[in-house]
Amino acid sequence: MRPIPLAAIRHLIVDMDGVLWRGSQALPGMSRFFETARSLGIRFILATNNASKSGAEYLAKLRGFGVSVTLDEVLTSPQATAAYLARHAPEARVFVIGEPGLAAELRAKGLQVVNEQPEQATHVVVGWDRALTYDKLAEACLLIRRGAAFIGTNPDVTYPSERGIVPGNGATLAALRVSTGVEPLIIGKPQPEMMRQAMARMGGSPENTAVVGDRLDTDILGGQNAGLTTILVLTGVTSLDEARDSAIRPDYIFQDIGAVADALQQANT
């Protein structure tokens, strides 16, 4: 499918880490992007693979940067995972590796989290966990080996922190994959489930929706897997040289989210 022109974009699915901020530092043009999208009537969903925070926590972080969005404009891989399980396995009893936001999203969809009684688990859901321990890995390994379904919120092997590139959830999934011989079902990018959920929220379609991200292997590939136009920014994981050398080719490349805003403004004038 050919990329749609910038002037045809009416809906955006925008990554956050490495696009809007790195750790606690806002990236250039972040506020300008939101002002431009609102003024042009472009709807957006902020869709992140980062499983460490709930949607409400992301709203609070955005407010700290002086940006106001609604909860409906945020979609995290925990939210997408919870929605998927609520639709396909509403009786699931879940052992969780992850931070409090992941368990909170699962419970919000009526799913039972059984970390205190892991022997009851029918599913193991794994998200990024900065308090990861060997005991958590061992418990998850045993459960998966006994037949519990293995689900990963997202496959990102690294995370762009303010200190630099550090291990992401994909590193945890890799440990469980090699110790169980089981491949996880991935809900987040690059699988198309999150993109489809985001488009459904906005009423978007491939003919008027684009994805903005900083990673070729999740954001850009995820957009391509959903048949969407893709926009890479160079403020996160992927460098310009990597983008030029990769088999995964974004439709547009901009230096940062501010440059995306400027291009959208120009295309609509």
Score class of each variant (00 low, 15 high):
199 M>A: 11
187 I>P: 00
139 E>V: 14
237 V>D: 08
168 G>C: 08
26 A>W: 13
35 E>K: 15
177 R>S: 14
147 G>H: 08
176 L>V: 04
201 R>M: 10
226 A>N: 06
46 L>K: 06
193 E>Y: 15
136 K>I: 02
266 Q>D: 04
124 V>K: 11
31 S>H: 09
39 S>H: 12
161 S>V: 06
183 E>Q: 13
244 R>H: 10
215 R>G: 03
223 G>P: 03
187 I>V: 12
165 I>D: 02
260 V>T: 07
55 G>M: 14
159 Y>E: 02
53 K>G: 05
71 L>N: 12
243 A>H: 08
93 R>I: 07
88 H>P: 04
73 E>N: 08
173 L>G: 05
119 E>K: 13
261 A>Q: 04
1 M>S: 14
156 D>H: 09
71 L>D: 13
21 W>M: 00
109 K>A: 12
256 D>F: 03
131 A>K: 13
200 A>Q: 15
242 E>F: 08
14 V>Q: 01
65 F>I: 01
20 L>C: 12
149 A>H: 10
114 V>Q: 00
95 F>R: 09
21 W>G: 00
204 G>Q: 12
129 D>R: 04
104 A>F: 11
206 P>E: 14
186 I>N: 06
210 A>I: 03
201 R>D: 08
95 F>A: 13
40 L>T: 01
34 F>V: 10
248 I>P: 02
8 A>P: 01
58 Y>P: 01
22 R>M: 04
245 D>Y: 02
119 E>D: 15
197 Q>A: 11
138 A>C: 04
25 Q>L: 08
191 Q>H: 10
131 A>F: 10
232 L>D: 06
120 Q>I: 04
54 S>Y: 07
230 T>P: 01
158 T>E: 07
244 R>Q: 10
112 Q>W: 10
50 N>Y: 06
247 A>R: 06
142 L>V: 15
221 L>H: 04
14 V>W: 05
58 Y>D: 05
3 P>L: 03
114 V>P: 02
189 K>C: 02
49 N>A: 10
175 A>S: 12
242 E>M: 13
226 A>H: 03
188 G>L: 03
20 L>R: 02
231 I>H: 05
234 L>G: 10
241 D>Y: 05
178 V>Y: 09
141 C>G: 03
166 V>I: 14
17 D>E: 00
156 D>I: 06
233 V>Q: 06
180 T>Q: 11
4 I>Q: 08
7 A>M: 03
150 F>M: 05
189 K>F: 05
255 Q>I: 09
136 K>H: 10
148 A>R: 03
153 T>P: 04
71 L>R: 14
112 Q>L: 15
30 M>F: 03
210 A>W: 01
129 D>E: 07
252 Y>I: 08
61 K>G: 04
179 S>R: 02
148 A>Q: 06
18 G>H: 01
9 I>H: 11
103 A>G: 11
4 I>T: 06
208 N>M: 05
41 G>T: 11
139 E>Q: 14
125 V>D: 01
4 I>V: 12
141 C>R: 09
191 Q>Y: 02
93 R>T: 09
241 D>C: 06
100 P>Y: 00
193 E>G: 04
245 D>R: 12
160 P>Y: 12
51 A>H: 01
89 A>M: 08
121 A>H: 00
121 A>E: 04
152 G>S: 10
188 G>C: 05
79 Q>L: 10
94 V>K: 07
50 N>S: 13
61 K>Y: 07
218 T>Y: 07
97 I>L: 14
182 V>N: 07
132 L>H: 09
87 R>E: 15
129 D>N: 11
148 A>L: 01
